[in-house]
């Protein structure tokens, strides 16, 4: 059970194109430090990009900001990476989201709408909280598959 925060990094970024790259570079640096394997870091990177793009494209946040919190969780050793991507935008109703289907998308003029499915497919656990005051996507991935974990958080 990963119940303590061993290291935490908070970022505030402008909601602008390519900000997703800056956010995921920071997440990758933390994931490398905690000893996560390269393949798992790549999956974190891709999920992070999608979470940021969703905020950049859909949040309509008045402050035009994206808030990213990257936390290494564990008891004594790093066990889990938790990334929270938040905005203070208009939010969305998840019940109204239609799960994308490739067969339908091939026939449709709109090929988009894959972000959340990709995030859920690449991360171990995903929680989305959205209200009229903003959206938070909380994504976690365990270190499993990585090299021997080094102590983080000093």
């Amino acid at each position: 059970m990963a119940d303590s925060i061993l290291k935490e990094v908070a970022l505030t970024l402008d909601l602008a194109p390519d900000m997703e790259i800056e956010a995921c570079e920071k997440a990758c640096a933390v994931a490398e430090l905690m000893g996560m394997s390269a393949d798992r870091i790549d999956e974190v990177k891709m999920a992070m990009i999608e979470a940021c793009i969703n905020a950049i494209e859909h949040s309509e946040a008045a402050d035009s900001k994206l808030y990213v919190d990257i936390a290494v969780l564990g008891t004594q050793e790093p066990q889990e990476l938790r990334i929270t991507v938040s905005d203070r935008g208009v939010g969305f109703d998840r019940k109204k989201l239609v799960k994308p289907d490739i067969e339908q998308k091939l026939k449709s003029s709109s090929k988009r709408g894959w972000g959340l499915q990709i995030i859920e497919g690449l991360m171990d656990k995903v929680t989305v909280a959205s209200t009229g005051a903003g959206t938070s996507v909380i994504m976690t991935k365990t270190i499993a598959g990585g090299r021997a974990a080094s102590r983080v958080g000093s």
Binding site: M46, I49, E50, L106, K111, R112, W114
Partner: peptide, 20 residues
Amino acid sequence: TKIVNSIGISILIEIIEKMI
């Protein structure tokens, strides 16, 4: 290519549709 995003892949889906 080490990174892609879903917008880029959506455009690849358009190419797949065209090829079909």
